[in-house]
């Protein structure tokens, strides 16, 4: 991901700033500018997520794309945030001990490097509470 593409969503990646539709009271992360339910009646506003949630499903990745190769094996999960949206992120926990249903909270980590000479891309991962 090039620097501008990463930077554009830096608030979302660093601080889990998503959106919500005030028409139907639904929270979105990743953020959406159009509510799939209300469409043109969408009333979208920024919403901060607490970063706390629960593991819906998980895997331990052994074979990753090259940028993540050095970290394998790592745990990846779909996390349902308490506000209702779901995100895909790594769970930082030794030996893949985290399990479905576990409570997790957001932490701040390096997500990937744009090569040795490029930018460092930080973002949100999760750790077991």
């Amino acid at each position: 991901m090039t620097a501008p593409r990463f930077w554009r969503k830096i608030n979302q990646r660093y601080r889990l700033v998503g959106t919500e539709c005030r028409t139907c009271d639904t929270a979105f992360f990743p953020p959406r500018d159009l509510c799939p339910e209300c469409r043109r009646e969408s009333d979208i506003a920024e919403k901060a997520f607490s970063g706390e949630g629960e593991v819906v499903t998980k895997t331990v990745v052994h074979d990753a794309i090259s940028d993540y190769d050095a970290e394998t094996p790592y745990t990846l999960a779909v996390v349902e945030l308490d506000e209702g949206a779901r995100i895909t992120a790594q769970v930082v926990e030794g030996d893949g001990e985290v399990d479905v249903g576990d409570r997790v909270e957001a932490c701040f980590r390096r997500v990937r490097d744009e090569g040795e000479e490029g930018i460092v891309q930080y973002g949100t991962k999760f750790e077991r509470v």
Binding site: Y14, A70, E71, V92, C107, F108, R109, R110, V111, V120, Y122, K125
Partner: peptide, 16 residues
């Protein structure tokens, strides 16, 4: 540090 931790991530965790 974990492999994905550095001075920036440690600073952020301390600040938070």
């Amino acid at each position: 540090p974990d492999e994905d931790e550095d001075t920036a991530t440690i600073s952020v965790e301390a600040a938070r």
